[in-house]
Nucleic acid binder design. Structure first.
Length: 287
DNA sequence: AGCACA
């Protein structure tokens, strides 16, 4: 139990910073061919604009270009951001993964390395960002004057015939609520149809922590969590696949603070971006 | 997306 991967103090020690607990990793300036320098961004609200994505990334070191893609699957929107090196991409990912993108809805960015690099770099005349709209296929090329061909996303955005056909008439809502100042005033009109409470579950003094790397250790997480008031006990479970953790706190508020502070933080053991933290579905059993 | 312990 005493031996595991050594800690990297560069990442581990961040005693009093709340907004930027992690120093940026050292970006590389040149990559071996094949290195991924493109980020895949999900968790975006369906009314996100390409401009917002561009503003999110444009100041990051090494940024080259980005694109917003309407997958055509419901209202789902994803984005890709390309950097001049893998290191720069990782730095931007570590800074932005898990941050609240829309404080109104509490939606949180989820950023990971893309499966493949965007072929399209920023070219003169192509504009700073690109929009790809697969929401409905029109034979006229009226809306996408700047996308001649898209080769990104080996995901499953538009399979030839495999996917359920997108509804033809659900695109009209997108401009109606794109600039609404407030969604729904509390107590007027709507019943509580949505169980979503910001982070996805109802508050609990136990936290569920996922997106841990395969080499994450209990000690590593415990050292991090024990800096926070009310921390009680930590358990790690590696159900065959990736490990997940449960961290128990005395009070819900203390768990909430930790979740807000550590959401998206990168552990030194991680190979996959920051932690993903939610309230656990049930409180850890006292034992 | 992935939520155990009794």
């Amino acid at each position: 139990m005493a031996y595991h991967q050594p800690y990297d103090p560069y990442y581990v020690y961040h005693p009093h910073s709340h907004t930027h607990p992690l120093p940026p990793p050292l970006p590389q300036f040149s990559d071996e061919p094949g290195a991924i320098n493109t980020l895949f961004v999900s968790g975006l609200p369906d009314d996100v604009k390409a401009r917002e994505i561009h503003n999110l990334f444009r100041r990051r070191p090494g940024f080259e270009s980005c694109q917003l893609k309407y997958t055509g699957r419901g209202d789902q929107v994803v984005a890709f951001a390309t950097f001049s090196s893998h290191g720069f991409a990782m730095a931007a990912m570590n800074e932005l993964n898990g941050v609240k993108f829309d404080p109104q809805t509490g939606s949180t960015l989820h950023i990971e390395l893309a499966r493949s690099n965007s072929r399209r770099k920023e070219r003169p005349g192509s504009g700073p960002y690109v929009v790809i709209d697969n929401r409905n296929q029109k034979s006229s090329k009226s809306q996408d004057d700047q996308s001649d061909e898209e080769e990104i996303d080996p995901d499953e955005a538009q399979e030839p015939g495999n996917i359920d056909s997108p509804k033809e008439n659900d695109y009209a809502k997108s401009e109606a609520d794109s600039d609404a100042d407030s969604k729904a005033p509390p107590g007027s009109g709507h019943l509580e149809k949505v169980p979503e409470g910001g982070s996805g579950a109802r508050p609990c003094s136990t936290l569920f922590i996922a997106n841990l790397g395969p080499n994450c250790t209990e000690d590593e997480l415990k050292q991090l969590l024990s800096r926070y008031p009310g921390f009680n006990i930590l358990k790690i479970r590696a159900r065959g696949g990736m490990p997940v953790a449960f961290a128990d706190f005395e009070e819900i508020e203390q768990a909430t603070d930790v979740m807000n502070d550590l959401q998206g933080n990168l552990l030194s053991s991680s190979d996959r971006g920051g932690m993903h933290i939610e309230y656990a579905r049930s409180k850890m059993r006292k034992q």
